Simulated scan of single mutants.
Amino acid sequence: MEELELLKKDWNKESDEFKNYSEKELYEMIKQKSVSVTRVLCLIGLIEIVLWAIYGYIDEELPILRIVLFAVFFALIIYFYFKMKTEESSISLMKSILNTRKIIFGYAGISFLLIILMNSIDFKHNTKDFMAGLNDGYNHNNLHTTNSERMTPELGNYIVFGVVLIITTYLLYIIYKKTYGKILVDLQKNYKELSKVEENEV
């Protein structure tokens, strides 16, 4: 980042030749940083899909809708990753950064909406699964030994599961904020730097 700051300070120098060189260098640095951020995004996405697959395996029911959503998200991220690597101008790179940010926003928003909707719709069923899981754990049984359909939830069970669900959702929010949120901030910084480059070129 020190080199980046030095380049920005040199923008105001009178030498046009050095000024153009600085802009070119700055553009390449921002481009590489954006590509690197997008690469990290891909890795985080892969880790997430593996975790959801493990969850589906344990639950004996793959979250098909979430996997489809992620597949679309991942395909778009891969597309913009390679697009960023081949961009030749500040404007086109800025567009790619904006599109990537929109995709992340959309994915995170839809993902959380799905969590809320699916757990609200299947609240009773999920509460039964939760009770069955607790029963298996308490009695040291194998997974899914207890038939969840035979469980009869009471008000206290709903309250406990609701609290656990809220805590879990909040933890997911924190994780998303620390991962996807940080990537959004980094991309926003890159976008602002590119805007300065574009203004300086004009």
Rank of each mutant, 00 (worst) to 15 (best):
W52Q: 15
T86I: 13
S111N: 12
R39Y: 12
S148A: 10
I47C: 15
I64K: 15
K8A: 05
G137T: 06
V160L: 07
L65A: 15
L41H: 12
N141H: 10
Q32T: 03
E14R: 10
L41C: 12
L134I: 04
D122W: 12
L143I: 11
I97H: 00
M1A: 05
I47V: 14
K128L: 00
F74P: 06
T100E: 00
K85A: 01
V40N: 15
V35S: 03
L43D: 05
L117H: 08
N119I: 02
I166Q: 13
G106Q: 02
Y176G: 08
K102R: 11
H140F: 08
I58Y: 05
V185D: 01
M1T: 04
L41P: 09
Q188L: 00
N20C: 01
S34G: 03
K189P: 03
I174N: 07
T38K: 12
T152Y: 07
L4K: 15
H144K: 13
I115D: 10
L172C: 11
P153Y: 01
I64S: 11
L65E: 14
V50Y: 07
S34F: 00
L98R: 06
L7W: 06
Y173S: 15
F161W: 08
V163P: 01
L117C: 14
K19A: 02
F80V: 01
N126D: 04
Y173T: 14
N142A: 10
K83N: 04
N142Y: 09
K8L: 12
E5M: 01
L172H: 15
S111I: 07
H140G: 09
Q32C: 06
T169A: 14
G106C: 03
S36M: 07
I121Y: 08
K24W: 02
L93F: 02
E5F: 01
T179W: 03
E17H: 08
S15D: 08
Y180H: 12
G156H: 12
S36C: 08
F112A: 03
L165R: 15
D59Y: 12
K196V: 02
T127V: 04
M151Y: 09
A75F: 07
K196Y: 00
S89A: 02
L7Y: 07
T127Y: 06
F112N: 04
G45R: 02
L26I: 11
T169E: 07
N141S: 04
G45S: 06
D129I: 11
F82R: 15
Y107R: 01
T168V: 12
K178A: 12
V50M: 05
K124I: 10
D59S: 10
L143T: 09
I167A: 14
I183R: 12
K19R: 07
Y173C: 13
S120I: 04
E48N: 11
